[in-house]
């Protein structure tokens, strides 16, 4: 069984795109369309990495990430923000979250998986 990835994105198309790319690469993909679901799945499944959109319907992805960092069991799970908020303010927002990364949308389908793998434990 491949590594577990949680993708949190409220846009169904983008969620599907990321899921397709990751599954092709052999990951087990969990999906969440809002932060609350993302938190529940993270605690339950302890994925190897979380791909988090920043603009989510219930809270900001960065906020959900901070909640995960406070919990001992989820504190060390790498979180990569895959977001359309590529302007300076968006990047500033995630700067202080440990073990986090940033991939701007639109994603490069050829390099996406490789980029994700770089944030994961070997």
């Amino acid at each position: 069984m491949g590594k577990k990835v949680l993708v949190v994105d409220d846009n169904a198309n983008n969620l599907l795109l990321e899921k397709d790319l990751l599954e092709v690469a052999g990951f087990t993909v969990f999906e969440a369309e809002n932060a609350a679901d993302g938190l529940i799945i993270t605690r339950r499944e302890k994925p190897d990495i979380v791909l988090m959109d920043v603009r989510l319907p219930d809270m900001r992805g960065t906020e959900a990430a901070r909640i995960l960092r406070r919990d001992k069991e989820t504190a060390d799970i790498p979180i990569v923000f895959v977001t359309s908020s590529v302007m300076a303010e968006g990047i500033e927002e995630i700067k202080d979250i440990k073990k986090s990364g940033f991939i701007g949308k639109p994603i490069n389908t050829r390099t996406f998986v490789e980029e994700i793998s770089r944030f994961m434990k070997p």
Binding site: N13, N14, M87, P106, I107, T109
Partner: peptide
């Protein structure tokens, strides 16, 4: 604007 335009482009370019 940046965010809203990128979101659909992400799907178009991605797929």
């Amino acid at each position: 604007m940046s965010h809203e335009l990128r979101t659909p482009l992400n799907s178009i370019i991605g797929f």
